[in-house]
């Protein structure tokens, strides 16, 4: 579940993506999958005429076929339509969570890198503490404090991921601060604020954003996990994790209710991972440090 994180942290350390052997056609396919998911999230009507909440009890629990590609659920709703409509919620949740995590990471990381010795110590200690808590449990803890719900899930996931990005930003910022070009800029008499805005932030952010691509997959997975546990979106909204959770009760009789939304999550995460790693491999070589 949090598997991607390790690669993320590891690659940051080694500055080199594992799985650099993913062949180019694979990257193209993955990019196409992501593009499709994005299109569908923006305009779900392109792929399906039905509405995700249309109930049709007569055709409940129909298996996959030409009428209903992914079958129908216990209320006769078309699973394909629901998966298509679920893309928007799921992608948005992941995007919001990773965005919040990166933003928090930038604040923490820059504060640690620029805040002098005591600032660095405090923030390092804080990230150490947060990193010691398993991310899923940390997210659950936040949900327990804030209560269930979509917005709270986003915050919970962001909190769970923030230490990773905080540390990453700090490492990158320290590297940039020690680099020859910052020395050259100091030598030109640039003020600290200009220096940070012109050189430190843009150069530290590049690798972080590339890694955040992979992190987006992780966030998406966490979001669906929390929904799956009944802590995120609430029925009847079509959200992949939630649909999967609803399908759990029908595994023996109607496997398709749960399997297809799960496949959508998995496929998206794989595509994100492949594209993210490709970007990593590409930009790690170009950073030129």
């Amino acid at each position: 579940m949090t598997a991607v994180d390790a690669v993320l942290a590891g690659a940051a350390r080694r500055r080199r993506a594992p799985g650099r052997s993913v062949p180019r056609p694979g990257v193209l396919v993955a990019a196409a999958v992501l593009a499709l998911a994005a299109c569908v999230a923006v305009a779900p009507g392109l792929l399906t005429d039905a509405a995700p909440t249309d109930i049709d009890p007569v055709h409940a629990l129909v298996g996959p076929g030409t009428d209903h590609w992914f079958g129908t659920d216990q209320l006769g709703r078309d699973v394909f339509t629901r998966v298509v409509y679920g893309a928007r919620t799921s992608l948005l949740l992941g995007l919001a969570a990773i965005g919040l995590a990166v933003a928090g990471g930038v604040v923490l990381g820059l504060a640690a890198a620029l805040g002098g010795r005591s600032g660095e110590r405090i923030i390092t200690w804080l990230t150490d503490v947060l990193l010691a808590l398993p991310p899923v449990l940390l997210a659950l803890l936040v949900v327990a404090v804030l209560g269930a719900g979509t917005a709270n899930t986003v915050v919970a996931i962001a909190v769970a991921l923030v230490p990773v990005y905080g540390r990453l930003v700090r490492t990158e910022a320290m590297l940039v601060l020690r680099s020859g070009y910052v020395e050259a800029a100091v030598g030109l008499g640039l003020r600290r604020g200009v220096l940070v805005a012109r050189h430190v932030l843009p150069n530290a952010l590049g690798p972080v954003l590339v890694l955040a691509t992979v992190g987006f997959g992780t966030a998406l997975m966490y979001a669906s996990a929390l929904s799956f546990l009944g802590l995120g979106s609430s029925p009847p909204s079509p959200e992949w994790g939630l649909m999967l959770s609803e399908g759990r009760d029908f595994l023996q009789t109607a496997w398709w209710i749960g399997v297809f939304p799960g496949a959508a999550i998995t496929l998206t995460v794989i595509a994100v991972t492949v594209v993210g790693r490709y970007l990593q491999a590409r930009f790690a070589g170009r950073a030129g440090r």
Binding site: S179, G180, E183, V186, G187, L188, G189, R286, R289
Partner: peptide, 25 residues
């Protein structure tokens, strides 16, 4: 550094490893 800054441009450096002394972007 504050005291030096106005005079910084009067002294410049040529480093050993040029590539690392350029902002990669």
């Amino acid at each position: 550094e504050r005291d030096r800054r106005p005079h910084r441009r009067r002294m410049q450096a040529v480093q050993q490893d040029p590539l690392s002394s350029f902002d990669p972007r």
